[in-house]
Amino acid sequence: MKKSLALIIEQLESRQTMQALSPKRVWDAALDQEIAALPLISAGTPKSAVPALIALKAGLHLLNESLDASHEQSQEIEDDPTGCYWHGIMHRMEGDFSNANYWFSNAGAHPAMESLQTRVADWLQNSVILGDLQEGAIRDALQVIKRQVRWQAPALTSMIALQESGTISEEARGAIEYVQHMELMELFAYTHQAAKRAVAESSI
């Protein structure tokens, strides 16, 4: 029996491990097939709703760490800000950092960035993570993120590129991973709500 969208989301959100900064394989291959088979778009789907639904599938695949499948979806909506944001994260996860920042620029001041900035700043303010980190580039970058007014996706790209060099501590890597997790969750929450608004008459 095919899983419904709700069950797929539940499985992705309840996984015990956060998405890797640089995934080497799909998290759940069977789930990826279920995502691909979701009948989100049909002949009767309003044309205006299609970009939001494609973005939803791009997000689901990326939460499952299926970079190629997510890329295939986001490439279909390169004029859509949400599609551009997912596109950028996909390239960042594959280690193509300059291309990631190109797509983040195309996404512009995405609506999900406001809630994301608030969430990340609150976490940095109220957790002990900054005090636990050794002095250095990652700690300094997180301090900047805590104080900034608007989320800057390239700042996270720079931190991930730095951790790829293998010169940062395990604590710093864990902090970056959690910030990425918050970014993925906030963008997906926005994407899901946007898809539901776009086709309010459907059962998504």
Results as ranks from 00 to 15, higher is better:
Ile35Met: 02
Asp28Ala: 10
Glu135Thr: 14
Ser127Lys: 10
Gly108Leu: 07
Ile168Cys: 13
Gln180Asp: 09
Pro154Cys: 14
Asp28Pro: 01
Ala43Ser: 09
Ser115Val: 07
Leu5Tyr: 07
Ser115Trp: 02
Glu170Ala: 15
Gly166Tyr: 06
Met182Ile: 04
Ser74Arg: 05
Met1Asp: 11
Ile41Phe: 06
Leu31Ser: 00
Leu67Trp: 06
Asp96Pro: 02
Thr157Ala: 06
Ile204Ser: 03
Pro154Gln: 11
Arg197Val: 14
Ala200His: 11
Thr82Leu: 05
Ile89Arg: 14
Gln117His: 04
Gly83Gln: 05
Ser4Lys: 12
Ser22Pro: 03
Ala200Glu: 12
Glu78Ala: 08
Ser14Gln: 14
Leu142Thr: 05
Lys2His: 14
Leu133Phe: 02
Gly131Leu: 08
Gly44Val: 03
Ala155Gly: 12
Thr191Pro: 03
Asp80Glu: 10
Val120Cys: 12
Arg25Met: 09
Asp28Thr: 00
Thr191Trp: 05
Ala55Phe: 00
Val199Glu: 13
Trp151Glu: 01
Ala153Leu: 11
Val26Gln: 02
Leu162Tyr: 15
Ala20Val: 00
Leu21Pro: 01
Val128Lys: 10
Val128Met: 08
Ser66Tyr: 01
Ile160His: 10
Ser98Arg: 13
Ala29Pro: 07
Phe188Glu: 00
Ala137Gly: 07
Gln163Arg: 15
Glu13Phe: 13
Ser169Gln: 03
Ser202Gln: 08
Ala52His: 13
Ala153Arg: 14
Met90Gly: 06
Val179Ile: 15
Asn126Cys: 04
Asp132Phe: 09
Ala109Gln: 08
Leu31Trp: 00
Asn101Asp: 15
Trp86Val: 04
Gln19Pro: 07
Asn64Arg: 00
His87Glu: 01
Glu170Met: 14
Glu135Asp: 15
Met182Asn: 04
Glu186Tyr: 02
Thr191Leu: 02
Tyr178Ile: 07
Val50Pro: 09
Gln193Cys: 03
Gln117Asp: 07
Glu10Tyr: 13
Leu130Ala: 10
Gly166Ser: 12
Lys196Pro: 03
Trp86Cys: 00
Ala6Asn: 11
Trp27Leu: 08
His91Tyr: 14
Ala58Thr: 00
Arg92Tyr: 02
Leu53His: 06
Ala107Pro: 02
Asp32Glu: 09
Leu67Asp: 06
Tyr102His: 13
Ala37Met: 06
Ser4Gln: 11
Ala52Ser: 13
Asn106His: 09
Ser202Pro: 04
Val179His: 02
Ser158Gly: 10
Glu10Phe: 09
Val199Gln: 14
Gln117Ile: 05
Ile35Glu: 00
Ile160Met: 15
Phe104Asp: 01
Leu40Arg: 04
Arg139Asn: 10
Met185Ala: 13
Ser74Lys: 04
Ile160Asp: 05
Ala161Ile: 11
Leu60Phe: 04
Leu156Ser: 07
Asn99Ile: 12
Gly95Lys: 12
Ile204His: 09
Leu62Met: 09
Lys2Met: 11
Cys84Leu: 02
Phe188Gln: 01
Gln180Asn: 13
Thr118Asp: 09
Ser42Lys: 10
Arg92Glu: 00
Ile160Phe: 05
His110Val: 03
Ser105His: 12
Ser66Asn: 11
Thr157Tyr: 03
Lys24Cys: 10
Ala175Lys: 01
Ser165Gln: 15
Glu171Arg: 15
